[in-house]
Each structure stands twice: as C-alpha cells, then as structure tokens.
Amino acid sequence: MKMTSIQLKKILDSKLNEEQWRTSFNRDKDTYRVEWQDSHQGITITLPNVVAKYEQKGEKAIEELVFHIREALQVMNQTPTLQGKENAVFPVIRSTSFPTQTNAELALIYAEHTAETRIYYALDLGKTYQLIDQGMLEQEGWTEERVKEVASFNLRSLSTNSKHDQVAGNDFYFISTNDGYDASRVLNEAFLEEMRLNAKGELAVAVPHQDVLILVDVQNDTGYDILAQMTMKFFAEGRVPITSLSFIYEDKKLEPIFILAKNRPTPNKNTKKDE
C-alpha cells in the first residue's frame, strides 16, 4: 500500500518528538515543518517528495531524512566559528538555482563555476557542515580570498580513490565516499588533469548530486548516451541534486556535452589522447 502524506506526518511526529522543537503540518501545501521553540529557526519538508523516495528506498529514506533534520537543527542552534578551524573549510558544489543568501538575508560566500554550477564554501562540523556567510567572515576577520584559498588547499587532501566499471567499451569511475564533498572533487584540477592525460578517448564528468562524482573515459558514442542516462537517474535520486547535465573536460575547462555534441570529434579507442 502506498504511503500517504498523513501517514508520513505521523511517523515524523513520533521520531521528532522533542520538547524544544515544534512541528506543524500545512495541509494545503503538503509540507511538514520542524523548528526550535525559541528561535523559530527550522526546516520545511515537502512530503510528496519524501513519499516518492520511500517508494524507492523504503524505511531507509525516512531514517536518512530524520537524521539530516536532526543534524541541521543542531547546526541552527550553534554559533559556528572559523577560528582555529582552517582545516575544516571545504568547497561544495551547488546548482546555480541555489540561494545566494541565508534565511536571515546574509550573503553566502560563493564563486562562479559553470553555467549550471556554483561553488559555495562550508565549515565542516563533523556529521554535517554549515555554509559560510558574510556574517561569519566579519565576525572572524576573514576575507573571501582566504576562505577560497584554504578551501582549495583542503580539497586537495581528500582521497580520489574511485570504483571502476567498464560499460560498452567505456571506462566509468565513481567517487562516492559520502563525506559531503564527493562532487567537490571536480574542483581538484590536478586530479582531472591526471585522468585526462591517462584517458584513451575524451574525459567526461558529471556531478548529478552532492554525494557522487562520475568520470568517464569516453571511447565511443555509446559512452555519451550511457553517461546522460546515468546522470539523469542519479540527479533524480540525489538528496542534494546539482545538475542533470554532464560535461567534457578539456583545456582545464568544463563544457556541457550538449553544446559540443555537433562538433565533437570521434574518439579513437586505439590511440592515446594527445597531450
């Protein structure tokens, strides 16, 4: 039997029953909100989206949701500090539709990336992280340049170990450590350059959601089709979706594949790519 929003609300009520929190259900919008009693800071969940994930993943979908709600609420009740935490600052990838300011209307620190993606900066808090805003910088006396330099340095310390699969003559590599920064590894230029130089064909990449980076040594046209289908599937299933488009990595730049499709050279699977 398919779960209803009312049934899901009752489950969440029982799992988020804390004296310091208040829960509410908006029947018209089909949303569920959890917030702190004193500050009214909280999270609003669109229930039909959770129901859809429940149909795919079962109880695990609800367990993940409750975990992330609890973690996010705890972060909201803290006053984070950058002082002495330089090694806990990392870049995170988001879509260009992601807000550029907090609910309190403080500007988030970000940098442009591609037409589809944007780079934000986060302070790692262990099981979760908080995006860095202008207020935090002013409080700590940091500059945007310092945040970006520190984040770039820390990114290079993250493992780039990947799982390898060969599909229809194309080599697929997946990085999915679930550390919150899997998609961020697309910003590791040295890593992408190494992958490109070792590719037999073209190097394509995708960041469908926060918790995966897909790299493909594309050696025939089927590889592009498989990557497109795979990226769309991952995008639909991701907890923090980014983009359903995939990119070609060339000359240290990322270009959406659909733009290059008409002029794309046919990779020669027997010849190593020119450096």
Results as ranks from 00 to 15, higher is better:
Y121I: 00
N220P: 06
Y224R: 08
G141E: 09
S176G: 04
T102V: 02
R94A: 07
Q130W: 03
L158I: 09
D30N: 14
W21A: 01
S157V: 08
K262V: 09
K253F: 00
I45M: 06
M3V: 15
P99S: 09
H40T: 05
T222M: 15
Y249K: 11
K57F: 13
E116A: 11
R156D: 04
E189F: 01
D182L: 05
S95Q: 12
Q134Y: 12
R22C: 10
Q74D: 08
I6T: 08
T243V: 03
F234V: 11
H209W: 07
D251W: 04
N154C: 03
T4N: 14
A72W: 03
K269I: 12
A204K: 00
E71Y: 07
P241I: 07
T81Y: 13
Q7N: 14
E189G: 03
V150P: 00
G201I: 12
S39R: 01
D28I: 05
S162P: 01
V207E: 06
N77Y: 10
E202L: 15
F98W: 15
A122T: 00
P48G: 11
G169C: 06
N178D: 01
K163L: 15
K29V: 03
D217F: 10
L82V: 00
Y249N: 12
T271C: 08
Q56R: 15
E275R: 11
T160D: 02
A206H: 10
K29Q: 10
M232Y: 12
Q229P: 05
E63M: 07
K272H: 15
Q134T: 10
P91A: 08
A190L: 05
S5C: 14
S152I: 00
E18P: 01
N161L: 00
W142C: 02
G141T: 07
G238D: 04
I132P: 00
G238S: 03
S246I: 03
T222F: 12
H209Q: 13
E189V: 04
F172S: 06
V240E: 15
L245V: 07
S184W: 04
E19Y: 13
N220Q: 08
Y181Q: 01
N103P: 12
K148M: 06
K163W: 13
A151Y: 01
L82F: 07
K9I: 11
Q101P: 05
D13H: 06
L260Y: 10
A115L: 07
W21T: 02
E250P: 07
A183I: 11
T81V: 14
R146F: 03
R94G: 02
Y173V: 01
D124H: 00
M195G: 04
R196Y: 13
I43T: 06
V212A: 06
F191E: 06
N87H: 15
R196A: 14
F247R: 04
Q41H: 09
S97Q: 08
G141W: 09
I257L: 14
A111L: 08
N49L: 11
L82P: 04
A122Q: 03
L106D: 07
K10C: 11
L16D: 03
N77T: 09
